[in-house]
Write a protein that binds this DNA or RNA. Sequence first.
DNA 1: TTGGATGCAAAAGATTTGCACTCCC
DNA 2: GGGAGTGCAAATCTTTTGCATCCAA
Lengths: 135, 135
Amino acid sequence: MKDMIKKLKEIGLKVTPQRLAILEIIKGDRTHPSAEKIYDRISRKYPGLSFATVYSTLSKLVGVGEIQELDIDPNKKRFDPYTSVHWHFYCKTCKKVYDVDYDSSLTPGIKKIGGHQIDSIQLNFKGVCKHCTHK
Amino acid sequence: MKDMIKKLKEIGLKVTPQRLAILEIIKGDRTHPSAEKIYDRISRKYPGLSFATVYSTLSKLVGVGEIQELDIDPNKKRFDPYTSVHWHFYCKTCKKVYDVDYDSSLTPGIKKIGGHQIDSIQLNFKGVCKHCTHK
DNA sequence: TTGGATGCAAAAGATTTGCACTCCC
DNA sequence: GGGAGTGCAAATCTTTTGCATCCAA
């Protein structure tokens, strides 16, 4: 909790109960939740929380690099609080997003490509996950 | 035109004027258009074309691997008729998607990762493109 | 002829916005 | 006190769906 307060202050955002709850929920969540999933989980504890607040907070956290927005689920945005380098696998059947480590000699620091300035890189694998395959 | 008819028959889809128009428009289009852009371009020639037809045809073409659906634009699906191996750069400013070649020793044939079966791979770079940077 | 394809409009799902009220700093 | 933050509902945007009609094979 102390951590979250400190983090928000560092970022320059006002500390509110809603934001603390959002940070607390997503940090440590390795399921790559959508905005709706995050809203669901929090509104159990904080009835009255609104979507607008969730979206606005998530968007601010993405803006400062505190969490990452994933473009891997074709139907919605997914969020990842884990910011160190890793990649993702999306299961077309169960819609789960898995972290994958893949050492591809990829990107160790490329900042430009084709003359374009790179801010972020996503390597997305898609298919059917091992759990769905075995059913 | 002959090509398109042949292609549709190979795929096993009925040959209709709408589908021919869609194929004709997207093949050779290197702008990674969204469904709406495709609809716009075609409906100039074919008034009365419906969104439902565009979406349904695109989805069938994706299904047979004739075109690729890109998860890179956070706001909508983009389509790519160019099926050989290459990657993409998305400009956060102008929203254009550029093709990029990046030989990363990446993927030359990995079929599984973390035990999951891989169908497709996308490597997405994001940032500000050279044209937007220079403005 | 007949099942797949189309057009239209309505519906669904995700995200954003406007605005009045609230409360953190 | 003032401005950022919040809640609510309506609006927007993209994509899907239901259904009657149509047409390619």
